[in-house]
């Protein structure tokens, strides 16, 4: 392995200039909680020569409200996300996901930018960001690209980010005021455990109980993160009842199997995803008491 150089720029524009010049020979490090492990396991990209430490750039820190948008700078740590009052108000499911990550030490270092750029199957902030319909802001010498989160993930551990692009921000429109969000992570132990399966959901019901908005994204079950649109379509425009939720939950598991095929873990994941989807939906949807039919 070549010896690595490390650079600590202070502004976004410095970073952009450097990564443009070095292209695939430069690698950003934010919290380094993924990079250090790759380094130790000799799994860094072959060409890497220069580590660009972006953890001290003030512009990459913090969470702001901008009219209808919530903007999270890419270098914001999971601890900050977990504790931020704005997010607790507008996106508690994202706070819950951040809280479930690793241990306090990991959350103090690890950033949202790093989490989505690594794009691990089990990355915990991704399912909530999917249901929040987040957008990723990518900046390079050539300008700014804004990608819907779904287009950002292109395959297992693959993203649409180009080598010369820095993720500067993750943002999403404030969900409707009465929307309800949900996140659950199934872990083999209470801390420092990756998700066996996770699930995020967001729903809004109109006054008469009709589901006006529904978004669902399970984590750790498909090679790349996805929204489960057929389930959403099944539910939107209808009034929820036990039966409908059961049908939607069944469909969620079905979609997973249709994507992954039957694998060794399917006998476990199929029933469990169904249960977790049903729980998520029951949690965020209000089922009106049906008048008793005599």
């Amino acid at each position: 392995m070549k010896p690595l150089a490390i650079l600590q720029p202070e502004t976004i524009s410095e970073v952009i200039a450097v990564i443009d010049e070095y292209d695939n020979r430069a690698l950003c490090i934010a919290g380094a909680t993924d990079v250090m492990i790759a380094l130790r396991n000799r799994e860094l990209p072959e060409a890497t020569e220069l580590l660009v430490d972006i953890s001290r750039i003030a512009e990459l820190q913090g969470i702001r409200e901008d009219e209808n948008l919530i903007k999270i700078a890419a270098g914001t740590t999971h601890t900050e996300i977990e504790q931020d009052p704005l997010l607790q108000h507008y996106a508690p499911c994202l706070c819950a996901a951040a809280r479930s990550i690793g241990s306090p030490q990991i959350r103090n270092r690890g950033t949202m930018g790093g989490n989505i750029v690594t794009a691990a199957q089990c990355a915990d902030t991704i399912p909530p960001l999917m249901v929040l319909s987040a957008e990723i802001v990518l900046v390079s010498r050539c300008g700014t690209r804004i990608l819907p989160i779904e287009e950002f993930f292109t395959g297992p551990k693959k993203t649409a980010r180009r080598n010369n692009e820095l993720v500067t921000e993750i943002r999403f429109a404030k969900p409707p005021p009465n929307a309800r969000g949900y996140f659950y992570k199934l872990m083999r132990k209470e801390t420092v455990a990756k998700a066996r399966i996770s699930i995020a959901a967001l729903a809004e019901q109109s006054l008469d109980g009709t589901i006006s908005l529904l978004r669902l994204s399970p984590g750790s079950v498909t090679p790349r993160p996805r929204r489960f649109y057929p389930v959403e379509q099944l539910l939107e425009g209808r009034k929820p009842d036990e039966h409908l939720i059961e049908e939607a939950a069944g469909k969620t598991a079905e979609i997973m199997v249709s994507i992954t095929g039957r694998r060794w873990s399917t006998p476990y994941k199929e029933p469990v995803l169904r249960t977790l989807a049903a729980r998520a939906l029951k949690e965020i949807l209000t089922i009106e008491e049906q008048p008793h039919v005599q």
């Binding site: 083999r188 132990k189 209470e190 801390t191 420092v192 455990a193 990756k194």
Partner: peptide
Amino acid sequence: NFDEYMLPGVMD
């Protein structure tokens, strides 16, 4: 390593 071998932690 302990990402795969599940040793209980203090929260357990």
